[in-house]
Structure formats: C-alpha cells, structure tokens
Amino acid sequence: MRVTFTVNGRRHQADEVWEGESLLYVLRERLGLPGSKNACEQGECGSCTVRLDGVPVCACLVAAGQAEGREVVTVEGLAEYARARSDGAAAGARSERAAGDGTPAQPPVQPPPLAPVQQAFIDAGAIQCGFCTPGLLVAADELLEREPDPSDADIREALSGNLCRCTGYEKILDAVRLAAARGAETRP
C-alpha cells in the first residue's frame, strides 16, 4: 500500500509498504530516517519515541497505515522543531503573520543549532552508546515543552518509558535539569 505523511515538516510518500509494517520500519528503511531506534519493537524501551501529531509515541507500535496524513517529528527534526517553537514563543503573533502571508518558508542553509535538550545531553555526559538517546531526547523535549521547570520526580516519570543500559540515568537527569536551567536563564 501507499502511505503519505509529514515527517519533520516535509511530506513523504512510501510505496509498496507491507500492511504489517510499523511506522518505525517505514521511517528507518523506506524514508532514510534511521535516527529512531529499533531496540525492542514491543514498546518496552522508548528508543523509537517520535511525536505523532505532537504526542510522544513508540513508532514501533504505530502501524504504518495509521500514520497516513499525520505529522511526525523524529530526532532528526528535533532541532528545527525546537527552534520553531522558541521562535514562535518569542515572536508570538509575528510568526502567525509570517505563516499567513503565503510566502513559503525558506529551508535553512545551515543546519539549525542543536535543540537545547540535545546540547544538554552532550554537555552533561548523558550519552554513552547513544542508542537510547534519540528516544530520550524526544521524550525529554516534550516534557520541557509541557513543564519548563520539572521536579526530579516529574523527570523520572516522564522518562520512565525510556530504557538506558549505559548511564544509570544519573547524567540523563543532570542533562534535563541542565536544559531546564538554561531555559530559565533565557526566558524573559
């Protein structure tokens, strides 16, 4: 079957998709977006976490056909997603006008700088093998979007669906705290 949906702001179409394929398989093997990881394929590790219409889900448990017409954000688009969010927050109504004037957005010439949560994971030493990192980043970014100043208990609950086997989670907690603290510094 054919499946068409938006990934990281770009429309994608995949043909000859087997009906039993997951969104994860289509992203990784058909769309050339292997950032979302295939660690368990049973919803028990969170390595394939993506945003589906804004909601964090395990891409391994979404049938490809269920993504038809939907908006997906993966780790590959996280920096741009975070930038658009912060631009939107800073510019407020201005960005709405810009979006409404009919001028197509220019693709950035340079890749956008990392999302704050990505930079914090690097700085805090939260990445070792990195296989869990994409899913954790998507989940942590969504947490900070919802709750810019989370408590440790909030962080733990929000990330409880993401297994990490290398770090013992301490540096991941540090990273989310760090991203939150930096966010607080830049907020007016």
Partner: peptide, 21 residues
C-alpha cells in the same frame, strides 16, 4: 572533554550497525 560523537548521536545521524543500508 565532551564526546566527539556526541552531536551525531544527539541528532540521530550516528550510523549504528542496524541503520546500514
């Protein structure tokens, strides 16, 4: 010192063996 592969791992571009094509 931060990891040299940190940025690639944080952006999903780091190529694990299961990502190869």
């Amino acid at each position: 010192t931060p990891r040299p592969d940190g940025t690639l791992k944080a952006t999903g571009e780091f190529a694990y063996s299961s990502d190869l094509w």
